[in-house]
Amino acid sequence: MKIKKLNKSSLLVGLSLAVFSFIMVGPFIWMFITSVKTYEETIRIPMQILPKAIKWINYKIVFEKFPFIILYLNTFLVTIATVAGQLIIVSLAAYAFSRLNFPGRDIIFLLMLGFMMVPGQIFIIPRFNLMVNLGITNTLTALVLPSIFSVFGVFMMKQFFSTIPKELDEAALIDGCGYFRIFWNILLPLTKPGLVSLGIMIMLSTWKELMWPIIVNRNIEKMTLSAGLAMLIGEHTTYYEQVMAGAVISVLPMVIIFVIFQKQFVAGIARSGLKG
């Protein structure tokens, strides 16, 4: 009886995972199928699921319309700079909130967490005015600078630092280590799963960011992939097959990166909920 119940429960879990997996993967499959259709097939009613013939020419048209090499390079540079800058600043802030005692530490941390409940769109106008005053609009710097700090990242890394025994800090202080050396040589290597998972989340968020690149940059040679793809949507006519072809091209690197680092990502997310 126990074996039958176990098999039934396993089957139910398997079916549930299959359904949810299809719900998650389904839009990407539909995106690819649409990218190899003709324009008439994308707007046909009733809906045509599969194309009569695969049209790879949509990818060629997209590459001819936009400087994809420049857009890719801009996106890679912005993503790498944002990930590196945010990991450095966030990990330092999390170390300070987790291991150092200074006046108002808990109050400041609670105020920071309060900002997570405020919609980010509220800060767009002040942020844009700041970029204008600094004279860096229509540059890649304007895409990186506002994104090198994250309250969520500080909270997540603080959770990781909290899992490490404070006896390591005390032993290092006795041996003559300073606070920064303790952070860099002892604690930071122990939070590698957290850094990897947070880095992947920052990378995905930066790669798909749309609103801010469109607002702060108007020159297509200073745009990222997401902003460049938005230019494919016409005022009167939108060629959906070309939009989907561009979307497939832009999302492919992130899919590859996630597949490579998925174990570290899952391990990091699992450990972030632990407490010391």
Rank of each mutant, 00 (worst) to 15 (best):
residue 184 W to G: 05
residue 169 D to T: 10
residue 182 I to W: 10
residue 43 I to E: 08
residue 89 I to V: 10
residue 227 A to R: 04
residue 93 A to I: 06
residue 255 V to L: 12
residue 218 R to F: 12
residue 206 T to W: 04
residue 251 V to N: 06
residue 5 K to V: 05
residue 98 S to L: 12
residue 7 N to E: 13
residue 236 H to Y: 15
residue 42 T to Y: 02
residue 14 G to W: 09
residue 221 E to A: 14
residue 162 S to V: 03
residue 207 W to H: 01
residue 266 V to P: 01
residue 257 I to M: 14
residue 13 V to G: 04
residue 54 I to L: 07
residue 244 M to L: 01
residue 119 P to T: 00
residue 58 N to Y: 06
residue 194 G to R: 08
residue 176 G to F: 02
residue 260 I to A: 08
residue 19 V to N: 02
residue 250 S to V: 09
residue 1 M to N: 07
residue 194 G to S: 13
residue 47 M to T: 05
residue 145 L to N: 14
residue 148 I to Y: 02
residue 228 G to H: 00
residue 181 R to G: 12
residue 121 Q to P: 01
residue 99 R to H: 13
residue 241 E to A: 06
residue 174 I to V: 11
residue 162 S to Y: 09
residue 155 F to Y: 14
residue 232 L to K: 03
residue 101 N to D: 15
residue 231 M to N: 13
residue 150 S to H: 09
residue 31 M to S: 06
residue 264 Q to P: 10
residue 211 M to E: 09
residue 139 T to H: 07
residue 266 V to C: 03
residue 112 M to E: 12
residue 244 M to G: 00
residue 156 M to D: 07
residue 236 H to E: 13
residue 151 V to Y: 08
residue 162 S to D: 10
residue 67 P to Q: 01
residue 161 F to S: 13
residue 99 R to S: 13
residue 256 I to P: 15
residue 120 G to A: 11
residue 211 M to S: 15
residue 123 F to Q: 09
residue 95 Y to E: 02
residue 148 I to H: 00
residue 20 F to V: 08
residue 114 G to Q: 06
residue 264 Q to Y: 12
residue 230 A to S: 12
residue 136 I to V: 07
residue 132 V to W: 00
residue 235 E to I: 00
residue 169 D to L: 03
residue 237 T to L: 05
residue 165 P to V: 10
residue 109 F to V: 15
residue 217 N to F: 09
residue 218 R to D: 15
residue 198 L to Q: 13
residue 232 L to W: 02
residue 93 A to W: 11
residue 2 K to F: 05
residue 217 N to D: 09
residue 116 M to I: 10
residue 65 K to C: 00
residue 183 F to L: 08
residue 7 N to Y: 09
residue 209 E to M: 07
residue 63 F to R: 14
residue 12 L to M: 07
residue 94 A to V: 05
residue 86 Q to V: 07
residue 171 A to P: 11
residue 112 M to K: 12
residue 175 D to S: 10
residue 14 G to E: 01
residue 141 T to L: 14
residue 81 A to L: 08
residue 249 I to H: 04
residue 99 R to Y: 13
residue 85 G to E: 15
residue 244 M to T: 00
residue 61 I to T: 13
residue 13 V to F: 04
residue 52 K to L: 12
residue 181 R to M: 11
residue 56 W to K: 05
residue 251 V to H: 03
residue 263 K to E: 09
residue 220 I to C: 06
residue 175 D to Q: 12
residue 201 M to T: 12
residue 206 T to P: 06
residue 123 F to N: 10
residue 258 F to Y: 15
residue 61 I to L: 08
residue 46 P to H: 02
residue 11 L to S: 01
residue 34 T to R: 02
residue 39 Y to K: 08
residue 48 Q to F: 03
residue 274 L to H: 06
residue 147 S to P: 03
residue 139 T to M: 02
residue 5 K to A: 04
residue 140 L to V: 06
residue 222 K to E: 02
residue 45 I to D: 04
residue 178 G to E: 07
residue 205 S to T: 15
residue 146 P to W: 01
residue 3 I to N: 04
residue 226 S to W: 11
residue 222 K to Y: 08
residue 264 Q to W: 14
residue 18 A to P: 01
residue 8 K to G: 12
residue 22 F to W: 03
residue 130 L to F: 12
residue 160 F to C: 10
residue 257 I to K: 08
residue 98 S to G: 14
residue 57 I to C: 04
residue 145 L to F: 14
residue 265 F to N: 14
residue 153 G to T: 14
residue 227 A to K: 08
residue 120 G to Q: 13
residue 64 E to T: 09
residue 91 S to K: 12
residue 254 M to E: 06
